[in-house]
Design a protein around this nucleic acid. Structure first.
Lengths: 110, 110
DNA sequence: AAACATTATCGTAATATTGCAATATTAAAA
DNA sequence: TTTTAATATTGCAATATTACGATAATGTTT
């Protein structure tokens, strides 16, 4: 059907999935890499860097923002988008928990 | 269009995105959580646990396998699916690199 | 205020994803 | 070898995502 049965899963499972989903597009990875490396964080600079139309990038930024991966603040005429460390720390913890669990159990029995 | 312009991005960006994308569905998160906690790792057990049809779960397992998140081995009549530690370690490193970079630069200037 | 610059939203077309019933495949068991 | 059990694949319908041109909204500058 194309519709995810979100109601069948826990809030936490759904939220985790949404976070990963937001990271699951090369353009959004490219945006993150740009923000990591850039001195400024003006939206227009991102549009200049990526091979996509302005409208498309605006949508990707919206998705990253909804997922809590970036935050934006008005900077005069334009908007400054930056990474949200809190979310990445949460993500880091999540992955570390998993690798720890894998190591302490026999989750890799195959 | 619905078509991702993969050709416009680097291989690494595309691969990273594919990995996250595979994690971006609650059913697949639920499968991972089950495998973390389960003693055995038989496919049929996963089907029993999740509120989805067998065909649907088979598809999700295929996606996880394609992304290198799980690996399967034949166990008599059935198939044993397990987490692939290597991939999670890679993922862990990826996230840690990002948080390190955020901390050492001013990527969160907003 | 008018013109301009920047970003967001809308509308739409194309493709992708999700989910499941039905069926196929594979291997064990009888 | 027939039957049974377990998993994969196919075909399809419904919804979601991606992308972009056009346009709206917002704030700046003149």
């Amino acid at each position: 059907m194309g519709i995810t049965k979100s109601a069948s899963f826990s809030n936490e499972q759904n939220e985790t999935a949404l976070l990963f989903k937001a990271l699951g597009h090369p353009a959004r990875i490219a945006i993150i890499e740009y923000l990591l490396q850039a001195k400024s964080c003006i939206c227009g600079d991102i549009v200049d860097q990526l091979p996509l139309a302005q409208a498309t990038i605006s949508q990707h930024l919206k998705e990253l923002k909804n997922a809590g991966i970036i935050k934006g603040s008005i900077e005069g005429n334009s908007i400054c988008y930056c990474l949200d460390l809190t979310t990445f720390d949460k993500l880091s913890e999540l992955i570390t928990d998993i690798t720890d669990q894998i190591r302490t159990t026999n989750s890799t029995c195959c």
